[in-house]
Amino acid sequence: MKRVLIITLILSSFVFRAQGSNERGNEKQLTWETDVNKAISLSNKTNKPMLLFFTGSDWCGWCIRLQKEVLLTPEFEVWAKKNVILVELDYPRRTPQSEEIKNQNAGMQQAFSIQGFPTIWFATANIKEGKPNFTGLGNTGYVAGGPNAWLAVADGIIKKK
């Protein structure tokens, strides 16, 4: 009886590991930077503009809706990998953040005159005298109609670059 129990436990651990690796294989492969200076460096290195996503991830209904309807879709994933460096600037109410991130995000909110969420700015930047110097390309927010409608607006903004 003990032997059967041990064998069952061993086999079930292999099944759970296999399921876990399968699930991880299906996860989105997008990287959302939270360090603006790192994002600027990547943007300049790849010659892609930054997509700056100003969000209240744990309280803003429109932000959550934008995530579900656009930012977490396969269409957006393909487009983003080809066209932009993703930057998340989050202003949560319940999720803890470091003081460094809070200060950085507050400065970005001020620099881009963010009044509401979600707001997405497309921008390029250079570091001058240790400080970022941004060039805004245009902005948008939630766009009804799913990923294709949203991506048409985004393409219109970044093609002006």
Rank of each mutant, 00 (worst) to 15 (best):
S21T: 12
K160Y: 08
Y142S: 04
A106G: 06
N139T: 07
K38Y: 07
V143L: 04
Q67F: 11
F54V: 00
P49G: 03
K82V: 04
M50I: 11
V78R: 13
I101W: 08
S41Q: 14
E69R: 09
Q97F: 10
K161F: 13
Q67S: 12
T95H: 13
N133G: 00
V78Y: 10
Q97L: 13
E129V: 00
A125T: 12
V84H: 02
A152E: 15
V153L: 11
A39Y: 04
T73H: 03
P74N: 11
P49A: 06
L9T: 06
R93A: 13
K82S: 06
D155N: 13
G138W: 03
D155Y: 09
R3G: 08
A39W: 03
L30Q: 02
F134N: 08
Q19G: 00
V153K: 10
I158W: 03
A125W: 11
I157R: 09
A152P: 08
G130R: 01
E88V: 05
N103Y: 12
I114M: 08
Q19S: 07
E75M: 06
Q109I: 06
T46M: 13
K159T: 15
S13K: 09
K102Y: 07
G156M: 14
K82N: 09
I127S: 10
Y142A: 01
R24Y: 10
K128V: 00
K161I: 15
N133M: 03
E88P: 02
N83D: 00
I127E: 11
G107R: 09
Q104F: 08
A125P: 07
N83E: 03
L86T: 06
W62H: 03
K45Q: 11
Q29T: 05
A80D: 06
R93T: 13
F54T: 00
P132R: 14
V15G: 01
K159W: 15
D35G: 08
T46V: 05
I120C: 00
G141W: 10
L89M: 13
V153F: 11
K160E: 09
G156E: 12
D90H: 03
S57R: 04
I114A: 07
L86R: 04
G141S: 07
V36L: 14
T31Q: 05
L71N: 02
Y91F: 14
M108Q: 02
N26C: 02
Q19A: 10
P92G: 07
L30C: 05
I114Q: 05
W59G: 02
S113E: 12
T31P: 03
V70Y: 09
C60Y: 07
I40G: 04
N26W: 05
W150P: 08
F16M: 10
Q97G: 03
M50A: 05
D35T: 10
S98K: 13
G25K: 14
K159R: 15
W79K: 01
S41I: 08
V70L: 09
K159Q: 15
G116E: 10
N47R: 11
E99G: 04
A125M: 12
G141I: 06
